[in-house]
Every structure is written in structure tokens, then in C-alpha cells.
């Protein structure tokens, strides 16, 4: 059982935590932590990337190709 009950091919998680994506890194979109920088534009960049997912059959390959989080984990 789990809390979200959503198809993984149709789910993305956005989180600033380096731990954020646990068992499913290909569903995770990392974003830089924000505290006070008034010139930050990460939400604009994120929105642009998300446009590519709106009609995707499976979001995971697109997220994997864009962020390569699995590479970072293997190198950790």
C-alpha cells in the first residue's frame, strides 16, 4: 500500500531535497533549494521542462534523460 495511488508513468515529484527520490529517481525532478534569492528563475525553467511531460505516455525516460539523477547516485 502507499499514499499516492498514482501510475508511475504519469507521476513526477519535484523536490529540493538531495534525498528526495528514494526508490524512484526517474520520477524525481530536482530543484535547487531556495531561501531568498530575488533573481531565482528555477520555477520558470521547471515550467518549461514540465511542458514536455504534459502528454507523455511515460514520464520516466524524459526525466531520466534530463536530470540523470541515477548517474549521480551511482557515483555517490
Amino acid at each position: 500500500m502507499n499514499v499516492l495511488d498514482r501510475d508511475l508513468r504519469k507521476t513526477v515529484l519535484v523536490d529540493n531535497s538531495p534525498h528526495a527520490f528514494g526508490y524512484q529517481v526517474d520520477n524525481g525532478i530536482p530543484i535547487e533549494s531556495w531561501f531568498d534569492d530575488p533573481a531565482d528563475t528555477e520555477l520558470v525553467k521547471l515550467e518549461q521542462f514540465l511542458r514536455t511531460l504534459e502528454n507523455a505516455d511515460d514520464v520516466k525516460p524524459l526525466v531520466r534523460e534530463q536530470f540523470k539523477t541515477h548517474v549521480l547516485i551511482n557515483e555517490a
Binding site: N2, L4, D5, A20, F21, G22, Q24
Partner: peptide, 23 residues
């Protein structure tokens, strides 16, 4: 010590399940 956020459908065709963790 971390909070996991478990996301995926049991009914999903995917066997693996995602977990989201934040501090």
C-alpha cells in the same frame, strides 16, 4: 530520521514503487 513519501499505485502495472523523502 527522514520522512518518506511513498507514491505509486498498487494497481499500477509498475512493480517498483517510488518513495519521496524530505528532511
Amino acid at each position: 530520521g527522514n520522512y518518506l513519501k511513498v507514491g505509486a499505485s498498487e494497481a499500477s502495472r509498475e512493480r517498483s514503487e517510488p518513495i519521496k523523502i524530505t528532511h
